[in-house]
């Protein structure tokens, strides 16, 4: 065990800011968010660890940096149910259902049974028209654009929830029920023969 020093990873809190800024100028950049989904799963499946959560999660680092800079976190402990198995796995199932609905919508656009919906859905409730993709090359298939809108909405909604719980409780309260965190911890526990 050693004391941590500043390195490349300690600047990854900039990643969510860059990601959302790029998506604002061209929604196709939303696909870059797949790194945040695939990398934690690969680390858990191949390495049997949560290296991504522990060292590379830009979102978690951003919440810590915001808290330290602006002191807007209350610092209170989050309600116990946030870290209960029922809530964590329940939220994971909800999140996966929302992700599946994005895939289904993308398929409908791919198969031609639905038109491209150019809006961002915040917190799965509020549709915000979003057609700033002026630089979009016209030869890009509509289904790729549809997935971008859905995935950008998902990333934005989860970040908003993370910011709310960061302000109400401790900086990384989002981590207690983060779907990727729950999933990768479950994978690690299964791989290392630990009870779930």
């Amino acid at each position: 065990m050693s004391v941590k020093k500043n390195n490349f990873f300690s600047y990854l809190w900039l990643w969510p800011i860059i990601y959302f800024a790029l998506g604002f100028f061209n929604i196709l950049f939303a696909w870059l968010g797949m790194f945040d989904v695939m990398l934690p799963i690969l680390f858990a499946l191949i390495g049997g660890n949560k290296f991504f959560c522990n060292h590379m999660c830009g979102r978690g680092m951003l919440f810590t940096v915001i808290t330290k800079k602006f002191k807007i976190s209350s610092g209170k402990p989050a309600p116990k149910f946030f870290s209960s198995k029922y809530f964590r796995y329940g939220f994971l199932i909800f999140f996966m259902a929302m992700f599946t609905s994005i895939l289904i919508q993308t398929y409908f656009v791919y198969s031609g049974t639905a038109n491209l919906k150019e809006f961002i859905k915040i917190l799965w409730a509020f549709n915000i028209p979003f057609s700033l993709n002026l630089s979009m090359p016209s030869q890009i298939p509509a289904w790729i654009i549809q997935f971008s809108y859905g995935f950008y909405s998902l990333m934005l909604s989860s970040t908003i929830i993370g910011l709310i719980v960061m302000a109400l409780y401790r900086p990384r309260t989002w981590c207690t029920f983060c779907p990727m965190g729950s999933m990768t911890q479950a994978i690690c526990k299964i791989k290392n023969h630990q009870p779930l």
């Binding site: 004391v3 660890n49 949560k50 978690g60």
Partner: peptide
């Protein structure tokens, strides 16, 4: 039993006394 293995404690520890055991 409660730990979510996020690693926030390990980053914060000034002595490097905390390790996340195999992501669990």
């Amino acid at each position: 039993n409660i730990c979510v293995s996020c690693g926030a404690c390990a980053v914060e520890c000034p002595r490097g006394a905390i390790e996340i055991w195999k992501g669990c």
